[in-house]
């Protein structure tokens, strides 16, 4: 077991966990942050996406020992209301199980493009979100939401 100290949604947290515990389980079981979902447990579906130091990762593949002293953002601390509002209004949400991961991945790519001065295109969004599977929407509503959120942000 290790005493893991890391920042979650802006707050420093300490938990005692096995070093190879999945970050996903640490968040859900130890910190009761159940907004992060498990869809496959092998890094394919992206439902467990969280941001570590701003970068989207699959929390099912991240061992607890590797987030010591790092900054983790989950859907519960995602902020950026414009993205959530856009998902709710543009058909970006159906069953909702992919939604937290999708929103965090969207937030990360929009932030990165803004920082780099790169344009936000539909094709770019589709590539950036390819690690987040959605079975409900056909992705049209999600892409529309991300484009609107970007428009709203700039």
């Amino acid at each position: 077991m290790i005493d893991l100290r890391f920042r979650v949604n802006g707050e420093w947290r300490s938990v005692r966990v096995p070093p190879l515990a999945r970050l996903l389980d640490v968040l859900r079981e130890h910190l009761a942050l159940t907004g992060t979902k498990e869809g496959c447990g092998e890094g394919e579906c992206g439902a467990c996406t969280v941001l570590v130091d701003g970068a989207p990762v699959n929390s099912c593949l991240v061992p607890a020992c590797q987030v010591a002293d790092r900054d983790v953002v989950t859907i519960e601390g995602a902020g950026h209301e414009s993205i959530q509002e856009a998902f709710a209004d543009c058909g970006g949400v159906q069953c909702g199980i992919c939604t937290p991961g999708m929103i965090l991945a969207t937030r990360a790519c929009l932030a990165e493009w803004t920082a780099r001065g790169e344009p936000c295109t539909e094709a770019g969004l589709r590539r950036a979100l390819a690690g987040n599977l959605c079975r409900c929407t056909g992705y049209g509503g999600i892409i529309a939401a991300a484009l609107r959120a970007h428009g709203g942000a700039t």
């Binding site: 009761a32 907004g35 979902k37 959530q84 709710a88 209004d89 909702g96 939604t99 929103i103």
Partner: peptide
Amino acid sequence: TRRPDADAKVRGAARYVADLD
């Protein structure tokens, strides 16, 4: 109209079976 379940879902607050405490 905005679907009534959207707000909880975009905030990660919707409770699925695995989320039940």
